[in-house]
């Protein structure tokens, strides 16, 4: 049996330590500022998280591009030459065209390396949700599951990845065109914080609003706790877009207290999601009940 490599992209927000631990590769998207493209590094090689978020805070527009075909080509060729089969878990297709580009490139590469299998899968969850699904896939690979078994597992379980996110303002997401929000989210909702999930299509969807920042943090943790009821996997990922240490500590303590877990990973929301969600966003992810909502 050929070895399997799990590949994600800049959207997955997996820090280096975790990528190394689970032997996960990633292909880079780009951020664009003042018409200058910079690879979206999850290790913040080109700018720090603080620098990126300060830029956005100051009203600068940072946009993103999908994974270039060449980036896919290099990655897939390298892995094929090394003898790997590849499972690429992408940024949700509703948010980025990367999965389609990946599919096209994969087809070419598989023609060149007929023995290699390359699957491009939309996990329907962005950010650390995509990352957690990639980790799960890597664990299954390590357990010796076959390529098809891993794919089947992902297909069956991807919607059990739950996202609960809160932002100070929906403006950034709206401007980036990356949120579905009903008329309930129109107007100057001062002090009102939306709660955003990833729906069954991988679309960011504002599902409810609460008053006040701390209330919204309590709410995302409570909602995740509810979704994780009966779930064996107690891992919780916490992502933040340059929030204060106090806020990060608050959410971590809340997760410990309400969800009762110590398996918590905390990191910055990476450059791709960060550019559209804007500074101040806080998100929690965990495995649990199947997402059923379609926004």
């Amino acid at each position: 049996m050929r070895p399997i490599k799990i590949v994600t992209d800049s959207c997955s927000d997996l820090p280096k330590a975790l990528r190394d631990k689970y032997s996960i590769e990633y292909v880079k998207m780009n951020t664009v500022h003042n018409e200058k493209e910079t690879p979206a590094s999850l290790d913040w090689e080109y700018y720090s998280a603080k620098e990126l978020y300060d830029l956005i805070r100051n009203g600068e527009r940072v946009t993103t591009t999908q994974v270039p075909a060449q980036e896919f080509s290099q990655m897939f060729t390298k892995l094929a030459e090394e003898g790997y089969d590849v499972i690429y878990l992408s940024c949700p297709g509703v948010l980025s065209g990367s999965v389609n580009t990946g599919l096209m490139v994969a087809k070419d590469i598989m023609e060149k390396y007929p023995e290699a299998r390359i699957a491009c899968v939309d996990p329907l969850a962005p950010c650390m949700g995509e990352g957690m699904i990639a980790i799960k896939a890597a664990e299954l690979v390590a357990e010796g599951k076959t390529f098809d078994e891993v794919l089947a597992y992902i297909d069956e379980n991807k919607l059990r990845m739950n996202q609960f996110c809160t932002v100070n303002t929906l403006d950034y997401l709206k401007r980036a065109g990356r949120v579905k929000a009903s008329s309930a989210f129109f107007g100057n909702l001062f002090g009102v914080k939306p709660i955003i999930i990833s729906d069954i299509n991988g679309q960011n969807t504002a599902i409810k609003k609460v008053k006040g920042r701390l209330t919204s943090i309590d709410e995302i943790v409570n909602l995740l706790a509810e979704a994780m009821q009966g779930e064996e996997d107690r891992r919780v990922f916490v992502g933040h877009a340059d929030c204060t240490q106090e806020e990060v500590d608050y959410v971590v303590n809340k997760v410990k207290e309400v969800i009762g877990t110590d398996e918590i990973v905390v990191d910055f929301i990476g450059p791709i999601i960060g550019a559209s969600v804007g500074p101040g966003a806080l998100v929690v992810y965990g495995w649990g009940k199947k997402v059923e909502l379609e926004g």
Partner: peptide, 10 residues
């Protein structure tokens, strides 16, 4: 104002 900001007809 507070009430209307929380209006959600969905």
């Amino acid at each position: 104002y507070a009430a209307l900001t929380m209006l959600d007809l969905s």
